[in-house]
């Protein structure tokens, strides 16, 4: 399954939205009809309750059935909105790192590393390299609960990148970090997206995030009147 899904998408495919809309209780939350190029970061801004996270859920395949949504989502030449979520390979990053608490750091990364990377040594090297890239070498056997907030965020990023995602979906990933860490994490994340040359969607309410992302910005509406 893994092979088919990644095989269908060329490296550096763009993320296209064709007449995508999402509604809740008959109230239209957002509409999107555009293409995000490889290495480009589209920022979606809106107040809380505006449904901006529901866009990421729709792309990833996790939209709550309470929402109504329709439209086509394309990764390069492959339509993904009807694919099973596990075959879409949309790297997800949340405000919380969500490292699996029952695994050590190395096991967390190994869970993400595709099965195509075969052999103990090759897998170990790939994990060690990923930790090297985020400046945290040799922490494979650490318990994630003992890491600092910034370290957790970096391991979460490394885990997502190791899974070789076709696109990155960022759900306010920096908002739990303090100002200094936030700038560093932005550079690390956005740099990695550009290097991997994959399209990304960033959902945020922080204008500084949007500015740092450097890509187009979509603003979506006010929350439905209560």
């Amino acid at each position: 399954m893994d092979k088919q899904a990644t095989g269908g998408v060329k490296a550096g495919a763009s993320l296209g939205f064709c007449n995508v809309w999402i509604a809740l209780n008959g109230h239209l939350l957002l509409q999107l009809d555009r293409t995000v190029m490889p290495g480009e970061i589209l920022t979606v801004m809106g107040p809380s309750g505006s449904g901006k996270s529901s866009l990421l859920a729709f792309i990833g395949g996790f939209l709550d059935p309470a929402f109504e949504a329709d439209g086509e989502i394309w990764l390069g030449e492959m339509r993904i909105d009807k694919c099973p979520p596990a075959d879409r390979h949309c790297g997800l990053l949340f405000q919380d790192a969500l490292l699996f608490p029952h695994m050590n750091v190395g096991q967390n990364l190994s869970f993400a590393l595709p099965a195509e990377v075969k052999g103990r040594k090759a897998r170990k090297d790939a994990i060690a390299g990923a930790l090297q890239n985020i400046g945290l070498p040799d922490i494979e056997s650490r318990d994630p609960a003992t890491l600092s907030g910034g370290q957790k965020a970096r391991v979460a990023l490394a885990r997502t990148l190791l899974s070789r995602p076709n696109t990155m979906l960022l759900d306010e990933p920096f908002s739990s970090l303090d100002a200094e860490l936030r700038a560093a994490m932005r550079d690390l994340t956005f740099g990695a997206i550009r290097r991997a040359s994959i399209p990304a969607i960033l959902v945020t309410h922080d204008a500084a995030d949007a500015e740092a992302a450097g890509g187009p910005v979509v603003k979506i509406g006010a929350p439905p009147a209560i």
Partner: peptide, 29 residues
């Protein structure tokens, strides 16, 4: 249990069965 753990696992390419056995069940031990 935070549903995002299973979503992260799925987004990393894990099948529903793998997510269930490697993430959900151990977290419920």
């Amino acid at each position: 249990l935070d549903p995002r753990y299973e979503r992260v696992a799925t987004a990393l390419g894990a099948s529903p069965l793998r997510t269930f056995f490697a993430i959900r069940l151990p977290l419920m031990t």
